[in-house]
């Protein structure tokens, strides 16, 4: 079982769901990343997604777009982010999240090697569906990296079959049609999607997009195995994380989110 899947299982055994959090590598400064990861772990994050900045993030809403752009403006390169990750201690599994072109340009093998060296357990590429992922799946399987695919409310049954067949680690259920970011929602579509996925796979299913408060986490954890929180963390870091200042608040925020995974 992969480390990612094991993290979900461990939660399950404790009678709780998994909290997955997202942070952009290089926003704030890359040098801050190890400290941020430590704080996220201390707050109780079960899995951490490391966003690799890309110039044209079509699946992202304003928060993560802006965050990605700030990182690029600082000169952050995805491979530099992996080097910093390699030096950042922690127990929680890490997944890189981003877009195919930043993986394609260094070369799939080379990127996978550097991701492994950085202690990364898998990848989520927002603009790659299982059909287009053939080569990346092969490379990832060889190296032991998980390939997490997105399932959407618009996905047909045949597509969900493909997503669960080629997915590893967990299935990322997109809560709504739309891009990443905060938003009021009832998670009706997400509930239905998760139940459609559940009948197809034993892999854990986490719901993401638009989950921005403990109540959202609680709502989603009623029917899913985990909740992904991104924009909330990213916005907080941009506003309040100043060289370690804001650490306590971050830990408390993550702790509140984590608590909501146990309330079921």
């Amino acid at each position: 079982m992969s480390t990612i899947q094991a993290a979900f299982s461990a939660c399950h055994e404790r009678g709780e769901k998994a909290l997955v959090v997202f942070v952009t590598a290089g926003d704030p400064d890359l040098a801050e990343l190890p400290g941020i990861l430590e704080a996220l772990e201390e707050g109780g994050a079960d899995v951490i997604e490391i966003g690799l900045p890309f110039s044209d993030p079509i699946a992202d809403g304003p928060s993560i777009q802006a965050s990605s752009q700030r990182a690029l403006d600082r000169g952050v390169r995805p491979l530099d982010a992996l080097k910093v990750l390699a030096s950042a201690k922690g127990k929680v599994p890490r997944i890189v999240m981003g877009y195919i072109n930043t993986v394609l340009q260094p070369g799939l093998e080379s990127f996978a090697d550097q991701a492994l060296a950085a202690g990364v357990s898998g990848s989520i590429l927002c603009d790659v569906t299982p059909e287009e992922a053939g080569d990346w799946i092969d490379v990832s399987r060889n190296k032991g990296l998980d390939t997490v695919f997105l399932a959407a409310p618009t996905s047909t049954d045949a597509r969900l079959d493909l997503v669960v067949e080629r997915g590893r680690g967990f299935i990322y259920a997109v809560s709504r049609t739309g891009v990443t970011g905060k938003g009021q929602q009832t998670f009706v579509e997400a509930r239905e999607l998760v139940s459609r996925l559940r009948s197809r796979t034993d892999l854990p299913i986490a719901v993401g997009f638009g989950i921005s408060k403990p109540d959202d986490v609680r709502a989603v954890c009623e029917f899913a195995d985990g909740a992904v929180v991104g924009s909330l963390i990213v916005d907080f870091l941009a506003e309040h994380w100043k060289g370690g200042a804001g650490r306590e608040e971050l830990v408390a925020m993550v702790r509140d989110l984590k608590a909501a995974t146990k309330a079921v």
Binding site: T129, A152, T154, R159, G178
Partner: peptide, 14 residues
Amino acid sequence: GGRFVPETLIPALD
């Protein structure tokens, strides 16, 4: 060529 877009759009492209 190909299709490198979020999963949400694939059914619409189909």
